[in-house]
Every structure is written in C-alpha cells, then in structure tokens.
Amino acid sequence: MSKKITINSIKKSKGVSPLVMITAYDALFARLLESSADMILVGDSLNMSFAGKSDTLSATLEQMIYHTNAVAMGAKNSFLICDMPFGTYTNKKEALKNAIKVFQETPADAIKIEGGEEKADIVEYLCSSGIAVCGHIGLLPQAFRGEGGYKVKGKSEEEKSQLIRDAKALEKAGAFCMVIEGVKADVACEVAKSVKIPLIGIGAGKDVDGQVLVFSDMLGLFEEFTPKFVKKYMDGAALVKSAMKSYSDEVKSREFPQDIHTY
C-alpha cells in the first residue's frame, strides 16, 4: 500500500469496496503480500501453519509479539492486527494488561479477540482504554475443544439470531470491524447487513464486506489439508519442492555453482 489504511477508512469501506485481509508471520512474506492487502493479520494460525502444531491453543503472547514485530519490519505501510492468543483475555483487567503489552512492544494498529456478546464488555473496556479491537464471531478456533470440533454456524434460526446479537454487541462495544468465520453464506449476509462496521469473511460466502485467508493456504504451501473455503491461487508446495529438487540435483552433479556464481 502506498498510503497506510486507517480505522476510519476501514469503516468507510462498508458498502463501498470489499476489504482484503491476509495473514502473515514474518518479514519476508509480509513484504511480498502488503502491496495488495488492506490489512495484515498476524494470526494465531501461525501455531499450525508456521509451528506445525495441531491447533492454535498453545500459541503464546510472546510468540505473537515476536511475529508481529517481524511482520512490521516487512510491511511498514500495512494496517497490522495482532491476534490475541487463547487465555490472554479471560477478563477485562487481564485483557487490558496483555493488550497494552502488545501495543507497547509492537507497532500493531489493533488486536483481534474471539467471541461475541459474551466478550462485549471486554471489548468495550479495551476500546475505552485506547485499544483498537477487531472482533471475531461465528466459528471460533480457540473454542473448538469446548464445542467438540470445528462446527459451521448459522444452521438454525437460533444460531442466526445469536450471530446478529453478537455482531451488534461488538459494534456497540466499539469494535471497528470483525471477522466472521465458518458461517452459512446467507446468514453471514444478514449479519453483515445488521451492523454498520465491516465484516471480513472466511468461509462465510461473498456477501460480506471483505475476505481473509491464511497466506500459506492461499499460496498452496500448506499440504496437510485444505478447508472447503480455501482457494489455492498457486501450487506453492509443488513449486518449492521442484525448485529444491533442481538445486539438489545441480549440487550433486556439480553443475552449481557455475563461474557466474563464483568469486
């Protein structure tokens, strides 16, 4: 981005232009991705795609701060959101303490926390203390054990009503935007229409206010599984393996390095 996006411009995009959010975990990829992204999310998904863990729950605040700083070095003009990891916002005081730590130790523009109506008081407390908050409703990866797995939301009228209440509660609490994940497309559309702040979808259809993907999914680098909502824009894993094989073959045959690569 030639000019850094702001919270006000994010809010004003509602109903005007879809927002593009992508995850990043290091300076190298952040530098490559930022020119086409409105926002970069340093997601706790790094615990899976970067650290190889089976879920996000063991990500620590120290990890998130480290990776947020790394991303900031590569994407100096991006609007940067740091995911607050599991267990760091269980109550208002703890949430504020940890959010302040993120703001003091990184150049993050905002934090993201999971939860709807039940987290509205925490969001309001953070916002009133000068912390910009991106919400996250629908399927909550940090709650998957408590829910018995990753379950699509919005399959009943009760779930739809709750999602609308969640969105409205977070908006009233002061969130400037929110992620809506793993929600039936027609329901996500209704939820987006129920509030004046942008809803960024992931597995929530196209009729919301923007989209977010994990960069390693989008680039086809993550091979273990591919969620239904992911579109691979390149087969990154195959390209990397092919390049590595070529390098290995040339080293073994002494074709590399050539004179042009030699001092």
Rank of each mutant, 00 (worst) to 15 (best):
F215D: 01
K196E: 13
K232Q: 12
G220Q: 02
F215L: 03
S242N: 13
A243T: 05
G174V: 07
A188F: 12
K206T: 09
K168S: 10
F256N: 06
C189V: 02
E223A: 05
G182K: 12
H261V: 11
A192N: 09
D259K: 14
V195R: 09
A185M: 13
T226K: 14
Y247M: 09
V195T: 11
I202H: 04
D186S: 15
D217A: 06
A204H: 02
D217Q: 04
D207E: 10
A237N: 03
T262S: 14
V191Y: 08
V240A: 04
V212G: 09
A237E: 02
D209M: 07
F176K: 08
E224F: 03
E223F: 00
T226S: 03
V230C: 10
C177L: 15
P257Y: 06
Q258D: 11
A204V: 07
K228F: 03
K241V: 03
A238H: 03
C189E: 14
V240G: 01
D249Q: 05
S248P: 00
G203A: 06
A243Q: 08
L219M: 13
E250A: 08
P198R: 09
C189W: 05
K168N: 12
V179Q: 10
M244L: 14
D207Y: 07
K196P: 01
D209C: 04
I260V: 11
G210F: 12
E190I: 06
D207R: 08
V251P: 00
E255A: 12
S216L: 04
G220E: 05
A204R: 01
E255R: 08
E250R: 04
Q211P: 07
A167Y: 14
A188L: 11
M178L: 15
V251Y: 00
D209E: 11
M218Q: 03
T226V: 11
H261F: 15
V191H: 08
A188T: 14
S216V: 01
F225Y: 14
E223S: 07
M244E: 11
K196V: 01
F222Q: 02
T262E: 14
D249P: 02
G201T: 10
F256K: 08
K196A: 13
K228S: 04
G182S: 11
K241Q: 13
D217I: 08
K193T: 06
A169R: 13
A175M: 06
Y233P: 00
F229V: 04
E181M: 12
D207N: 13
S194D: 08
T262P: 09
S246A: 07
M178S: 13
M244T: 07
A169E: 11
E223W: 00
D259F: 14
K241T: 05
K232F: 00
D207F: 05
I197P: 03
E224G: 00
V179I: 15
K193P: 03
K232W: 00
I180M: 15
K196M: 05
E181I: 07
V191T: 07
